[in-house]
Simulated scan of single mutants.
Amino acid sequence: MSAGLPAFLTIVAIPLTFDVANGVSFGMITTCAVKVLAGRARQVSPVVYAVAALLLAR
């Protein structure tokens, strides 16, 4: 579930935002959030956390 939900939300976000970059950005941020909330924060690389933080700042 922690891998499927971000993928589904990415697929939904791309047509809703009319921009692939925004959809993928939303997917990266959602991936980090779901992994942390599921208690699997160690499965995500620190680089992914840094990229998600930069995407949030954008």
Rank of each mutant, 00 (worst) to 15 (best):
R42C: 12
V34G: 00
V20C: 10
T17N: 09
S25R: 10
P46C: 08
V51R: 09
G23L: 06
V47Q: 14
V34P: 01
D19V: 04
P15M: 06
V48H: 07
P46D: 07
A33S: 03
C32D: 01
V48T: 12
F18S: 12
G27Y: 00
V24P: 03
K35T: 07
A50T: 04
G27P: 04
R42N: 12
D19A: 10
Y49F: 04
V34M: 04
R40A: 10
K35Y: 13
S45N: 09
K35W: 10
D19P: 09
K35M: 12
G39P: 01
G27I: 00
F26M: 12
L37S: 13
A53M: 06
S25F: 10
A52M: 03
T30L: 06
R42A: 12
I29G: 03
D19I: 05
V20I: 14
K35C: 08
F26H: 10
V47G: 10
A52H: 03
F26P: 07
G23S: 03
N22H: 15
V24Q: 02
M28S: 12
S25G: 14
A33D: 01
V44H: 07
A41L: 04
V36F: 05
A38I: 05
I29N: 03
P46G: 10
G27F: 01
A52Q: 01
P15I: 07
G23N: 04
C32R: 00
A21L: 14
A53W: 08
V20E: 07
F18V: 11
G27N: 02
C32S: 02
L37H: 05
V34R: 00
A50G: 05
L16E: 13
N22G: 15
Y49L: 00
K35Q: 09
V48A: 13
L37V: 10
N22Q: 15
T31N: 00
G23E: 06
S25I: 10
L16Q: 15
D19Y: 13
A33K: 05
G39T: 03
L37C: 11
S45V: 08
I29T: 02
P46R: 02
V36K: 10
A38K: 13
T17W: 09
N22A: 14
T17G: 11
A21N: 15
K35F: 11
V36H: 05
V20A: 13
V36T: 04
R42E: 09
G27M: 01
V24S: 06
S45Y: 03
A50N: 02
G39R: 03
V36Y: 05
M28V: 15
F26V: 09
R40L: 04
T17Q: 13
V47A: 12
D19L: 08
A41E: 12
F26L: 11
Y49G: 01
G39S: 02
V48Q: 07
R42Y: 14
V20S: 11
Y49K: 00
G39A: 00
